[in-house]
Design a protein around this nucleic acid. Structure first.
Lengths: 145, 145
DNA sequence: GCTTGCTTCTACAGCTACTGTAGATGTTAT
DNA sequence: ATAACATCTACAGTAGCTGTAGAAGCAAGC
């Protein structure tokens, strides 16, 4: 069993954030030691690492709850899980597309930059992206219908 | 010139959020009409669309400020811009990697799911990702040194 | 020209997801 | 056993919005 401090170091997460996640129920109530300290297992570290990564990728806690429910209930009827997974996959694909566009533009800039100035920076055009995105995005709400 | 409502619809962004961005200086002070309404040009819509997309991708406003400064100052000396671009590129690459891992796992689940149950869901393992990520991530701080 | 209805204005309160601080108590090393 | 550090609870503060109240602007129809 690990202390909260160990878990915090292992996941690069603040101690308070771990207690906060327990409080809002996204992490289970940790069992306590004799002296009332929280005790964690490896599975808790995995779960927390998952949450942190998903947060860094911009998923809101509600979406993360959804994703976690997939592995918490491996025997739930498939259509519910399927809907969650599809929705999250859809979001992941859109994010990847945009990140790739940003990446290409940053690489272009860095390459061009070796010559002296960033004479025509198109970072904004790349991500503001009227062609496809603005129309599609309206169906991309976080919540389910 | 466009009204704030038009800009909000065009970028799928709340009117209050636009005013908030003006307040914190990430959007310029909009010129006003006779009757004190804010007036926007296409360039403002582009800038706002960029900000919204970057936010959805999980970039904090400070990073976005950095990115915007690249296109705001196309004549700034190259090493500063280069550092910003490299840092953001690095982040973008890490995000893409993680999203691809998540995507693969979601696809696997969806495929497997057609058979009845999600018997062994590995969503957590995929993103908790001890192998590479946890060590690398400590150098990945949002702020510059 | 006046009313109805919608938009925008300012100002401020509330929300999510943390993050920091205070003061007490537990634990470890010398 | 005492200093140094980790953890505890509780609560206040922050970033990035989001909602609401009440007043004022504006456009369309009578």
């Amino acid at each position: 069993m690990y202390t909260i401090g160990h878990v915090a170091r292992a996941t690069d997460c603040k101690v308070q954030t771990i207690r906060y996640y327990e409080q809002i129920g996204i992490l289970p109530q940790a069992p306590r030691s004799e002296g009332n300290r929280r005790l964690y297992a490896q599975a808790d570290i995995d779960r927390l690492a998952f949450i942190r990564h998903a947060r860094e990728l911009g998923f809101p806690l509600d979406s993360i709850r959804d994703l976690l429910s997939l592995s918490d209930n491996p025997d739930q009827p498939c259509d519910a899980a399927d809907a969650i997974a599809c929705r999250q996959l859809d979001q992941a694909n859109r994010r990847i597309e945009r990140l790739n566009a940003l990446k290409r533009e940053l690489e272009r800039m860095i390459k061009q930059c070796r010559g002296g100035k960033i004479s025509d920076c198109r970072v904004i055009e790349v991500l503001s992206d009227h062609g496809q995105c603005l129309k599609d995005d309206h169906q991309m709400a976080e919540a389910s219908p």
